[in-house]
């Protein structure tokens, strides 16, 4: 199953830029938090997940063709 994955801010260092999400192949659907782990992104670096421009939670199971963007925390003022 193919999905597109990219990130904003510091997360670009792990998954490339969101505007130009890289295609990845996953054998079977698994919660997005597992994919984040596999990408070696430290716990807490992802604040929000956008899938096809809709906010999803960390348990979301990606579907074929999803455009997934990872958003780091904002600085709170």
């Amino acid at each position: 199953m193919k999905i597109k994955l990219g990130g904003y801010g510091v997360l670009k260092n792990y998954v490339g830029p969101a505007e130009n999400g890289r295609e990845i192949d996953i054998a079977e659907s698994k919660p997005i938090k597992d994919i984040i782990k596999e990408m070696n992104i430290p716990d807490g670096m992802v604040m929000l997940i956008s899938v096809n421009d809709e906010q999803k939670n960390f348990d979301y199971l990606p579907q074929e063709g999803d455009d997934i963007k990872l958003i780091p925390p904002i600085s709170g003022g």
Binding site: S50, I74, S75
Partner: peptide, 18 residues
């Protein structure tokens, strides 16, 4: 995407993460 987030919740959007 943070534009939308800031317009919706402002800086309080970081409360849960914190």
């Amino acid at each position: 995407p943070n534009t939308k987030l800031f317009i919706e919740q402002g800086t309080a959007s970081v409360t849960n993460w914190s």
